[in-house]
Design a protein around this nucleic acid. Sequence first.
DNA 1: ATACAAGTTGGAGTGAACTCAAAGTCAAGT
DNA 2: ACTTGACTTTGAGTTCACTCCAACTTGTAT
Lengths: 135, 135
Amino acid sequence: MTIREVCEKYHILPDTLRYYERVGAIPAVNRTEGGIRDYSEEDMGWVENAICMRNAGVPVEMVASYVKLCQQGDGTFAARRDLLKEARTGIVKQMEKCRKELERLDYKIERYETAVETGQLVWDRTFAEDACGQT
Amino acid sequence: MTIREVCEKYHILPDTLRYYERVGAIPAVNRTEGGIRDYSEEDMGWVENAICMRNAGVPVEMVASYVKLCQQGDGTFAARRDLLKEARTGIVKQMEKCRKELERLDYKIERYETAVETGQLVWDRTFAEDACGQT
DNA sequence: ATACAAGTTGGAGTGAACTCAAAGTCAAGT
DNA sequence: ACTTGACTTTGAGTTCACTCCAACTTGTAT
């Protein structure tokens, strides 16, 4: 599979794929005689892995660390597990922030829906201290 | 309230607050005679709003747009609602990506837990096409 | 009055993650 | 053989969101 085809499949740019390879977020990709990248099924697996992790906000550097551990063989299972757990923690924190803001937004959107109808914007609820003001 | 106090309350840097004000993510803050920022309750509300939105990954520019609409008065209720809905859509998308990756990670972590015990890494499940490979 | 900490501005610098440009190589069609 | 388009590398440029710096002013404690 050419770089173009992989990019079409995952909706990313060739430069992004080359960048991922350069920084180690995916291992070196198979090449043809002429030196042109020819992605194997395994290469695609790595690409998918990088894209998934990045989609969830895992830093490129962390993805690269994981790839490196995988390449170091069977002695790194525990280290890989720990790294993935760390990534997991980051994602959970991020989701919790999103959940809070979503709750806040839903309330505000509802208030604005009413305001659009009545011409009056009213905050009838007070957000807790660590939530947000009535703006 | 001084900039230092606000920063301690929200665990951010003074430069970040000044930056938010400069780009319009919060409106111009009250000042003392000498020109030193003196955050009112309302100012704090705006600060909280900016921090909440940013925490959920809403771009600074979007926060600034919202603030601008608020400053333009009661004629912008519908526009504000639409902007918040747009922000909401972005957050929901982001959370869905996180949810998927979390599921993926949980499976992999579980596999690695087993691998650490048995010395054998086995993928006994195939991820769907839009999920990710066994890496 | 005088330190000196804390605040101010304008502008420059940083780090992460791409993204683009230039110059050259490879491959497919005519 | 020749053109055309895709791919290659190296290195530079961009965007976002801060973050830092220098020079200066303000406020507080002795």
